[in-house]
Design a protein around this nucleic acid. Structure first.
Lengths: 343, 343
DNA sequence: CCAAAACCTGGGAGCGCTCCCAGAACGTCA
DNA sequence: TGACGTTCTGGGAGCGCTCCCAGGTTTTGG
């Protein structure tokens, strides 16, 4: 049923800048100025061009713009794949939504790249090759040298989540420290005295920051900080850590779990041990994923606004690209407590 | 501490094709041939070029290639934002991972676009403007005309999830029908006789296919198909639908929920009504999200391999771009049952 | 009233590559 | 030995745009 004509790809029949110029009765240069919002174009010319553009359905050829101009009108979002995939899913989707929301209206494309083992050099070559104007890095694991490398190469870069090994590279992060501190304080205000924590991995800033915040909150409440177990942001690790904690201190009456996803596992263990939540053990999570509200019992948690993280990263990058000066080297987004049933 | 020199962006100091040519002692044309894997290059020249490339860290300028050549070396992944965001998160991340995995090694960039209300025309203009070689569409809602439009414009397009309003556009989908049928059969094999279903929205193929499959499975087991309620892929809607079902038939002893995320809500309602799962009511979900295994009780569910979906879509698109003929118009990926505790 | 400044416009070089064409080098067969 | 392939190579036009420059047309101000 195919036409059987024209088997090879038909050549691009696209309207070009020149045709718009002809249709509007002006020169290519003027059309270019209008498109790029430059000054020094008469209202009359400007309107004629806009009309011609809509009439012809013209869409500028990005490749040509990039080649001729000095910028690519394109930023990259780089995701390190080696990080915990489990953490990545809702986090990543949220960030992406934020990035996209912030980019809306700007004529900037988003290209997505995931760094794999071994192809780091390719990635760096590509990114530094002038194909993108800037880079957003979601660094899920610890000492990733990528942000440093990119920044050193002079490519505007913003990292999502405090990078452990990239001093000086601008980043945006949730205020994990204060969020965790609030959790500890809240638990103490409830009258809980044997408060444990299930922390994230030691090689991730997010894990360490939440642990530090919890410790600070505990100290302020004059509570001991001995009950610490570690997980890796999976439900299984949360269950195991809870098991360990219960073994070390059967009388514990509260636990701050550094991620909702681990809290799910902890809840299971608690249930298996016949502990009632929150009567026997109060539980506070972190993140406020959708699953927090459907957990049994619904999870009290520290909410971080992941979409806002994406937005802020993008804003910071675009501001830098726009040449703004004295931008903050890092930005911390406030967290908020969401009280449900578990604590 | 900045250098205070060179405030504007430094001009691209990138190695160009010509430099590689000079370094390798050949012409631009030959380097180009090597890069594009064309025949008619002597082994000697080929090796010299490869050496020069690695030595100089050369990375071809995509913009120039696109402009000069006939293809963009770039495909787009388009996501409709109006779809249920809730459904989107893990689904989207999984698809993306698959797409990326399939693209690995190919020199093809992935640009991400989300369609918003009102900017459809812009989107179409852009996509059809020769900036991308093909499009992957994740169509989350029903009658989206986008795939049709793109396909009609001659742009190779593959849809993820059966599109409702785009007859003839190639698509890849999980075998929702057979998966749901298996769920119904399984429930019947357990001896359950009053089996309900919580279906997805009527305007989404995924919802309808799973409902059809359930009906077919029920009919084969000579069971009535009257207990149908609808949700919208949110936990809340699942809870409400379960409530409705229980109101209509307090004696129901099983329910097939067309999405794990809704099953979570259903489980809550069941719990609130004092129904034990699976003793009083058996529950089977669909998707096998990570949360299925941490639900209380752990959810028996129909697993769909979302990453494989992404891979297959990409494979299908790339095959078409490579000029392969007689490709299947659609592809269905098998599902599998994961037995846990809830049924 | 005339010079200077501000505004507006078109022409054209060139971004880095691909791809066509012409031609060189090396056969191979009548 | 020359005519014809086959394999390899370099030259150069041009992809569609931006941006610089030169020049024209207004407005401003002394």
């Amino acid at each position: 049923m195919t036409d059987a004509v024209d088997p090879p790809k038909a050549r691009r029949p696209n309207t070009r800048l020149e045709e718009v110029a002809r249709a509007a009765g002006v020169s290519k240069s003027t059309v270019s100025r209008v498109i790029n919002g430059e000054p020094y174009v008469s209202l009359k010319a400007r309107e004629a061009v806009h009309q011609a553009i809509t009439r012809l359905g013209y869409s500028p050829n990005q490749a040509a713009r990039t080649l001729a101009g000095s910028r690519a009108n394109c930023i990259a979002l780089v995701v390190s794949e080696q990080g915990s995939r489990v953490l990545a899913d809702p986090f990543f989707a949220g960030v992406l939504r934020g990035v996209h929301a912030e980019l809306a209206g700007k004529r900037v494309q988003l290209v997505l790249m995931m760094s794999k083992e071994g192809d780091e050099q390719d990635l760096v070559n590509y990114l530094c090759g002038g194909h993108v104007d800037g880079v957003l890095v979601i660094s899920l694991h610890g000492q990733d040298p990528l942000p440093r490398t990119l920044a050193d190469a002079g490519l505007p870069t913003v990292v999502g989540g405090r990078p452990l090994g990239a001093g000086g590279v601008p980043y945006v992060d949730s205020d994990n420290f204060n969020g965790a501190m609030e959790a500890a304080r809240y638990l103490s205000s409830l009258g809980r005295r044997r408060v444990a924590t299930i922390a994230g991995p030691r090689d991730m800033a997010v894990g360490m920051d939440r642990l530090s915040g919890w410790k600070r909150g505990m100290s302020q409440a004059r509570l001991p900080v001995d009950l610490v177990a570690y997980g890796d942001f999976t439900p299984e690790s949360g269950a195991a850590a809870m098991e360990e904690l219960l073994g070390r201190e059967p009388e514990l009456d509260a636990v701050f779990v550094a991620a909702d996803i681990m809290a799910l596992g902890a809840l299971q263990t608690l249930h298996a041990h016949g502990k009632r939540v929150p009567e026997d053990v109060a539980v506070v999570g972190f993140d406020d994923l959708m699953i927090a509200s459907t957990a049994v019992p619904p999870l009290t948690t520290i909410r971080q606004d992941v979409e806002q993280l994406g937005r802020t990263m993008t804003w910071r990058l675009m501001a830098e690209l726009a040449g703004e000066e004295n931008l903050p080297p890092f930005l911390l987004l406030p967290t908020s407590m969401v009280k449900r049933t578990s604590a």
